[in-house]
């Protein structure tokens, strides 16, 4: 299909669909994660902005944007709303998903709460289904230490297949290492190979039947396995977003089929 995206390039598309100013041709970093993991604290720390951080879920409803310079390169950072998943069950989830999926940040930093890793990994796994360019930031390790919880980051890195940094953003701990990993992924010095979730046999078979056809239709713009899964569960919000970001006519038929 004749997508705007393909014809005009990433930067121009981001500008058009997500209101990025024109000179923003710098690398884009998205901060994503569950509510209350300290994304806004990290955002403030990186950008020197003073977006208010409160301790209640839902504080960052729309993404906010800032920038910082690391080793002479200017990065744009986007603070996405905190959500439990990316399955687009709410506006926040849709905002976060659409940004990762369509604006294609050069790195998505998934900020996770070290004191509650299991719940947060659910979100990490979902992000890794959409994009390879993921860095996991295990935040709040000072809280975890206080609660005598230990996260083995090396093992986590191996099991997830993506770089992992542990930080305590409120006291600035671990930030240089995080930025180092981020810049390496941005400039392809480090290529994350995210582990894939294995679904049950029936789903996997269905995906393998559908995926080649998704590639045929959409090219390599979006992660074909992920799109196939969404098609299989009949996710109408993805179709809506495709329509919003990639133009209307192409997708009218899709809508009809799903209605």
């Amino acid at each position: 299909m004749g997508l705007t995206y393909q014809s005009t390039g990433t930067a121009a598309f981001r500008e058009e669909a997500f209101n990025f100013s024109a000179d923003d041709k710098q690398p884009v970093i998205a901060l994503a994660g569950n509510p209350n993991t300290g994304k806004s604290t990290l955002f403030n720390l990186l950008t020197g902005l003073r977006q208010h951080t409160g301790n209640w879920p839902g504080k960052t409803v729309l993404q906010s944007k800032g920038s910082f310079i690391h080793q002479g390169i200017k990065y744009t950072v986007v603070d996405l709303p905190g959500t439990y998943s990316l399955l687009a069950n709410s506006i926040e989830e849709q905002v976060a998903r659409d940004f990762i999926c369509f604006a294609k940040p050069d790195v998505t930093v998934v900020v996770v709460d070290a004191t509650c890793l299991e719940r947060n990994l659910n979100f990490v796994l979902q992000v890794m289904e959409i994009t390879n360019k993921v860095v996991v930031c295990v935040n709040l390790i000072d809280e975890a230490r206080r609660k005598k919880i230990q996260v083995h980051t090396d093992k986590l890195r191996k099991m997830l297949g993506v770089p992992v940094a542990s930080t305590a953003a409120n006291i600035g701990e671990g930030i240089p290492k995080l930025l180092d990993l981020v810049s390496k992924v941005v400039f392809d010095k480090l290529k994350p190979k995210p582990v894939q979730i294995k679904y049950d046999k029936e789903i996997e078979e269905a995906v393998s039947k559908l995926e080649p056809k998704v590639i045929e239709a959409l090219g390599s713009e979006l992660n074909s396995r992920w799109v196939a899964l969404r098609l299989l569960e009949g996710d109408t919000t993805l179709i809506q977003s495709l329509e919003n970001y990639y133009g209307k006519q192409h997708l009218q038929t899709l809508q009809e089929v799903l209605a």
């Binding site: 439990y84 998943s85 399955l87 069950n89 709410s90 989830e93 719940r119």
Partner: peptide, 11 residues
């Protein structure tokens, strides 16, 4: 529908 999805989302 959405009610179920939300609950699933919570884990």
């Amino acid at each position: 529908g959405i009610k179920k999805r939300r609950l699933l989302d919570l884990g």
